[in-house]
Nucleic acid binder design. Structure first.
Length: 566
RNA sequence: UGGGGAUUCGUCUAGUGGUAGGACGACAGACUCUGGAUCUGUAAGCCGGGGUUCGAAUCCCUGAUCCCCAGCCA
């Protein structure tokens, strides 16, 4: 896949690394890490970080660790660890033997904490949670020092050990760094290093009763792993002075933290809280619902890792809050699927067509190209017979200007088949068109006329006798709004912007018979309609279910839109 | 007069004192047995105001707007 060399080679993080290489700051060594907290499913925003961190390591000939930031056992689980590993792997990245955990360093971290206490740089605070908040001050007012701030080293060590040994209930004490309660940066106002959590950890079991906070664990973990560039999102910029402070006070090797803007995607939400609400509120069917912006959701929807990686390369890396048009993701998707997905014919909303001059009971097996973008994909046979289905949308009794599909008296081509002409329209008592009676030209077999006659349209079709039935799930954007997070003028909230048509189920689509044994997860282009994949969860042999990954670009739809706007 | 960060086509993004470029999207056309793909072209931008300079997106001053921070979450 071609990547945009220009943009991938000129983002500010690459420049920073180049500078560090020139100055020899890290001995020209590059070592990054992707540090998810195993408390949920990875989403497209994480994909940006994964591609960035693993990509940098790849491009600069360095390494990238997978490190789980598992410092809060109340929210984390092995299930999440497993799903996150699967997602990183699926995206195409390999951490080799460096599957690491912040919890691997709990012993060392505890020793670091004791060292700071011994140095008079940390103390045990026994204020309640509310009191600590009160003492912290506000954004505009400095905080006040805790009455416990000047406890003796001996008392602090004693209390800390007893905290570790499980002598106290949750919240009784915390260990705090002694920095500056008047700092304009709230993170420096004696931040909490350890809190008591009488909870078992998914990896360390019942060993610990106290767990380190992010700020006390992350930098030291980076340092222990000899990370050179610790890349994180903008909200951690205010934490960088603290990151550096711990490492300096501890006299440890110091990586460089660099912040970039997290990804926002149009027509969806990416905050963990909102994603969780969608799942728990039943607005979608689980974390891997094909409408979810999770890696698992995209995978089930039929997206390819190549498409997501290409997207991450295209969006660039910068520091300003941006909302990327989801159309860009869809562009990367179509770009890859166009080259790789075999074509097939499927009629989603069938309209019966009888070829009146075609012999009854006869079947003609026609040659169809599997992928015009890939000669090696070969050809297949599709059956033609007297009774067919075409798409309802491909016929109009009273066609408007620029509609050049089938209409009474008009001739069109059936793809890889024959030219047919509509002779008669059959309706039911309600005036609904239920059948078309057409004639075919035997001379046009394969799709071209010996007399050089041309037709304006080519339609997809299936033979009714040979077609297989399938359920088709038509997915669309989850939200109707560019930015659902932005409150509406009338105060309506983000959930009210859910797209009621984000999933439309069609029970009885008609597929060409070659699709009968399509395996779960396999992707196709249904010609003239879009890319579809066999659902990996609900599809069963004999009763296939296809998910629409995305539509094809639709010029006719655009024409219709511009006509109705007039 | 709390701290931190940001602002370049509709949306992203390059630019590092010397012709504002690319991508997506939009529009127009060519081609086409997918109204797909492909190809060609068009429109579209430096947050505002001052200043420095032969020359400013870039340097200086000033203002505006947006984002993040007051978890014993990460």
């Amino acid at each position: 896949m071609t990547i945009n060399e220009e943009s991938t080679l000129s983002n500010f993080i690459q420049q920073a690394i180049n500078n560090d290489n020139e100055s020899g700051r890290f001995d020209r060594r590059i070592h990054t890490r992707f540090p998810p907290e195993p408390n949920g499913y990875l989403h497209i925003g994480h994909a940006k970080s994964i591609c960035l961190n693993f990509g940098l390591a790849r491009d600069f000939g360095g390494l990238c660790n997978l490190r789980f930031d598992d410092t809060n056992p109340t929210k984390e689980s092995v299930e999440y660890v497993e799903s996150q590993k699967e997602d990183v792997r699926w995206l195409g990245f390999d951490w080799h033997d460096r599957e690491l955990y912040a919890s691997d360093y709990f012993d060392e971290l505890y020793e670091f904490a004791k060292q700071l206490v011994l140095d008079g740089k940390a103390y045990v605070d026994s204020l309640s949670q509310d009191e600590i908040r009160e003492y912290r001050g506000t954004l505009t007012q400095p905080g006040r020092e805790s009455p416990y701030r000047e406890r003796s080293v001996e008392e602090n060590i004693d209390l800390l050990e007893r905290m570790k040994d499980g002598e106290f209930p949750d919240g009784a004490h915390v260990l705090r760094a002694k920095i500056d309660m008047a700092s304009p940066n709230i993170n420096m106002r004696d931040p909490v290093m350890y809190r008591i959590l009488n909870t078992e950890h998914h990896r360390t079991g019942a060993k610990w009763r106290i767990y380190p906070m992010y700020d006390f664990a992350h930098g030291q973990s980076d340092s222990i792993e000899r990370i050179t560039h610790s890349i994180c999102t903008m909200e951690y910029e205010d934490h960088r002075p603290l990151y550096d402070w711990f490492l300096e006070e501890l006299g440890m090797y110091q990586p460089r933290q660099i912040e970039f803007a997290r990804l926002n995607l149009s027509h969806t939400v990416l905050s963990k809280r909102r994603l969780l609400r969608l799942v728990e509120g039943g607005y979608v069917n689980g974390w891997d619902d094909p409408r979810m912006p999770t890696i698992a959701g995209f995978r089930r929807r039929g997206y390819t890792p190549e498409a997501i990686r290409d997207f991450c390369d295209r969006i660039g890396v910068a520091k300003n809050a941006a909302i990327i048009d989801i159309a860009l993701l869809e562009h990367s998707l179509r770009d890859h699927l166009n080259k790789t997905a075999p074509r097939a014919m499927a009629v989603i909303r069938p309209l019966k067509v009888v070829i009146t001059n075609y012999p009854e009971g006869e079947t003609d097996w026609l040659d169809a190209v599997n992928n015009p973008e890939d000669e090696t994909a070969g050809t297949r046979k599709v059956p033609f017979s007297r009774e067919l289905y075409i798409e309802r949308d491909d016929f109009m009794e009273d066609p408007p200007r620029r509609f050049y599909r089938l209409a009474p008296g008009r001739e069109v081509r059936l793809r890889y088949g024959y030219f047919i002409k509509c002779e008669e329209v059959v309706k039911d008592n309600d005036g609904e068109v239920i059948e078309l009676r057409c004639t075919y030209d035997p001379e046009t077999r394969g799709g071209s006329a010996p007399d050089g006659r041309r037709v304006r349209a080519t339609l997809h079709w299936v033979s009714s006798e040979h077609a297989i039935d399938a359920e088709v799930r038509l997915y669309d954007h989850l939200f109707m709004r560019w930015n659902p997070d932005e409150e509406a003028d009338d105060g309506a909230d983000w959930l009210s912007f859910l797209n009621p048509e984000s999933l439309v189920v069609v029970e009885a689509a008609k597929l060409e018979p070659s699709l009968a044994d399509a395996s779960p997860g396999s992707r196709y282009q249904f010609e003239r309609q879009g890319y579809f994949c066999v659902d990996t969860r609900d599809s069963m042999s004999g009763k296939p279910i296809f998910n629409r990954t995305t539509t094809l670009r639709d010029t006719w739809a655009r024409v219709q839109r511009s006509q109705s706007n007039r």
